[in-house]
Structure formats: structure tokens, C-alpha cells
Amino acid sequence: MLKVYMGGLENEIYNPDMYFNNQYEDKWITDELAKAMIADVDKSVVISSHVIDSPVLGAITPKELSGGVKTLMLLAFDTSGNIFNGSACGDNCAKWILKLAEDKDITITLHHGMRFGAGPFEIEILNNGKIVRNRHEWLENIYNFI
């Protein structure tokens, strides 16, 4: 399940982009899930663990991927137990966050009202312990805290 803390936490990784650059592993990049996320969010094609073909930037390394897709990969593959700032992700990453949380518990902080769509989904708001299942319930709960 996706668990969200609205607002900042002292121990959150606020800048997942930087954290990814120093912690990612080559095998993450060539994982089929990562390839799909990179194709969808960054519109780019993974050539190898070191090279990605971006339609805008040309041949890039994983460090030049967007902050959003780097955060998604951290949520998918990082095993440190750290809590990442989900607001490094744009709304075009929201469906992937929900998908990743289908298979395991994921905890993130959010500093903005991310758009997860109309629902149905299942998100626990850690600030008040409520579980919300659609956009209406999401909106009734999140903006009290940010």
C-alpha cells in the first residue's frame, strides 16, 4: 500500500535526484520495469546500463534522467528503507507510484497535492491515519497538512 506523509519529515531524502546519482546500481537501469518507466515519463530508450537515448538531449547517462523517474527507480529498487520526497515527481509519475505500491508498502513524503486521478486507489495518510480511496477523499484530507 502507498503511505503518504503530507509535509516534510526530518529524515526524508528531500532531493532524491542527488541521492540517486550517488546510489543507483547499473542493474536497475536495464530492469524491464525501469525501462518502461523511463520510456513513459522521459520518453527515452534504454540502450544499456550506461546509455539512454533521449529525444531531447541525445545520448545521456542515467544521471541525466529526470528527477521524477530517478525517484520512481528509488521507490522500486532501493532497499535502504529511506523515505523519499515524492514531490520530486510530477503528476505524470503518479500512476507509477500507485503501481509500485501494489506489490509492496511504499512510504513517501509529499509537499504538494499530487494528482492520482479520480480513483479507485488506496492511500494511507500518515498524518491522520486515514485511508482514502478516491480523489474526493484525497482532497478532503491532504491540504490541511501542507
Partner: peptide, 25 residues
Amino acid sequence: RLRFEFDIRRNITVVRGDSATGKTT
């Protein structure tokens, strides 16, 4: 390869939106 062009006319301008639109670039 890339060109950004925009006007700034107040003391505070905020840029946000989807991932991979070029903000960090």
C-alpha cells in the same frame, strides 16, 4: 541542441509541472 526563451516581469515566478519537461536542464 536546446533553447529556452521566456519573459520575467515580477519578483516571484514559479515553474512547476510534469517530470521530464526540462526544468532541471
